[in-house]
Every structure is written in structure tokens, then in C-alpha cells.
């Protein structure tokens, strides 16, 4: 896994050196702050409700940021031709995928951490538990990781970043609409499809409300693993074409 560490450092450095990282971070914090002010604190009276609304709005912004951060990871390398260096080096595709994913996750986690002043304001001026704050952030990280893996998979599929963005956003948005879609169906499909939803069941009804369910954690880890596996298999297939 030495190569993973090398690639992790390069990719994290790339986010810090290039405008994309700073632009995404600035937009995330700006939009999150505006949503916090205008929506989360709108007509809510209970501070726990305000905190829950903050995590719900933040998760949407985190999902968009995750796609924006991940689409460049492989597609950009194909566009510029730098992927040849990785392809002709003695590194495994799983190391490449993991290094890139962890770098994007680290950067996303830093951005998420920078929103902490908002829950802190609620805590100071209201009555919420630290546990609720911690669970909400755990949910944001897990949801962000799953979204990143989807974006990374889209990036591995596409040659152009725009295509990767469209595919990644479409996948994430579709998976976030499985619960409303399942609601229109009959059992047993209703239950199964609903549980596959990436946001409503596992985040909105779980982490955002300060509730930790093992099944929610397992779901996000499994989803991330699944799309990482797809990414590795896609890289393997394209490397030796």
C-alpha cells in the first residue's frame, strides 16, 4: 500500500494547489452558511430541529461537493495523458483508486469540519447534545464517502470530466430518489428498494436526527465498497485495453 500513500499525497496536494479545491471549498461553505441562515434557522424553535435541518441541508451540499471533487480524479488524467505514468508504473489499480479516494475524502472531511462553527452556534445559543453533533458529522462523512465513490466510479468510466460529472450526478440523484420511488410500489419491492436509497432512510431519518443505526453505517460502508470495487475493475479493464 506504499503506492496508495504516494498517490494520496499527490492528490491531496493537487486539491490544495489547484483552483478546483479552493473553489469547491468556498462554494460549499458559502452555500452551507446561506442555507443555515435562511432555511435551518427559518421558522424552527427547537434547537435540535435547527441542528437536524443543518445536517439535512449540509448533506445536499456535501453530495454536490463530493461529485465536484471526484470527477477530476481519473477523467482529468485521461484528458491530459498523465494517466500513462500510472499505467506504466508498477502500481496496482486498487492502490491508485484507494489513494485518490482517500485524498478526496480527506479534503472533503476538512471542508466538512470547517462548517463546525454553525453547530457550535446552535450549541452555545440552544440546547443540543454533543452526541447529536457527532452523529450528524459521522453521517456527513459516511454520506460524503459514498458520494465520492460514486463520483470516482463515474470518473473512471469517462474520458471527459463533463461526462463524468453528468454520470456521477445522475447516479447519486437517482439513488437519492429510490425511497420516494419505492413508496409508489408494492411490497416486497417497496421495502427492498427503499432501503437502497442513499439519503432518505439512512441519512435523513438516521444520522441527521442524531440516531445511530448500525445498518446505516453498514449501508454506507457497503455502498462505498461496492462503487470502489467497480472503480478498480473499470481501471483494470481500461488499463490493459
Amino acid at each position: 500500500m506504499r503506492a496508495t500513500s504516494i498517490i494520496f499525497k499527490r492528490e491531496l496536494g493537487a486539491y490544495l494547489r489547484s483552483p478546483i479545491g479552493w473553489v469547491v471549498a468556498a462554494v460549499l461553505l458559502l452555500v452551507d452558511g446561506i442555507l443555515f441562515q435562511t432555511q435551518a434557522m427559518g421558522d424552527k424553535h427547537l434547537s435540535a430541529d435547527v441542528l437536524r435541518a443543518f445536517f439535512i441541508y449540509s448533506s445536499v451540499v456535501v453530495g454536490i461537493a463530493a461529485i465536484a471533487l471526484s470527477i477530476r480524479l481519473v477523467a482529468e488524467e485521461r484528458q491530459t495523458g498523465s494517466i500513462v505514468l500510472l499505467n506504466t508504473s508498477p502500481v496496482r489499480d486498487v492502490e491508485v483508486a484507494l489513494g485518490k479516494f482517500l485524498a478526496a475524502l480527506a479534503f472533503l472531511a476538512i471542508m466538512i469540519a470547517m462548517t463546525f462553527y454553525m453547530p457550535l452556534l446552535i450549541k452555545i445559543n440552544g440546547k443540543v447534545s454533543w452526541a447529536h453533533v457527532a452523529v450528524g458529522y459521522l453521517g456527513l462523512i459516511l454520506f460524503g464517502a459514498a458520494s465520492l465513490s460514486i463520483g470516482l466510479f463515474a470518473s473512471a468510466l469517462a474520458r471527459h470530466q463533463l461526462v463524468a460529472a453528468v454520470v456521477g450526478a445522475a447516479l447519486l440523484a437517482s439513488m437519492g430518489q429510490l425511497f420516494p420511488l419505492a413508496d409508489k410500489l408494492d411490497a416486497p419491492l417497496k421495502g427492498a428498494l427503499g432501503q437502497l436509497d442513499v439519503w432518505w432512510i439512512h441519512f435523513q431519518q438516521g444520522f441527521a436526527s442524531g440516531i445511530v443505526n448500525v445498518k446505516d453505517i453498514v449501508y454506507y460502508l457497503a455502498l462505498t465498497y461496492f462503487f470502489m470495487l467497480l472503480t478498480v475493475k473499470t481501471l483494470e479493464a481500461k488499463r490493459w485495453q
Binding site: 499527490r10 496536494g13 493537487a14 494547489r17 491530459t80 495523458g81 498523465s82 500513462v84 505514468l85
Partner: peptide
């Protein structure tokens, strides 16, 4: 060691 037609460089580094 391989140099393809387009150097595989990372412009930001």
C-alpha cells in the same frame, strides 16, 4: 521508462 507522445506530466506540480 516510457515517454509517450504527450509527456505524462502533472501541470500543477
Amino acid at each position: 521508462g516510457f515517454l509517450p507522445e504527450n509527456p505524462p506530466v502533472y501541470a500543477d506540480m
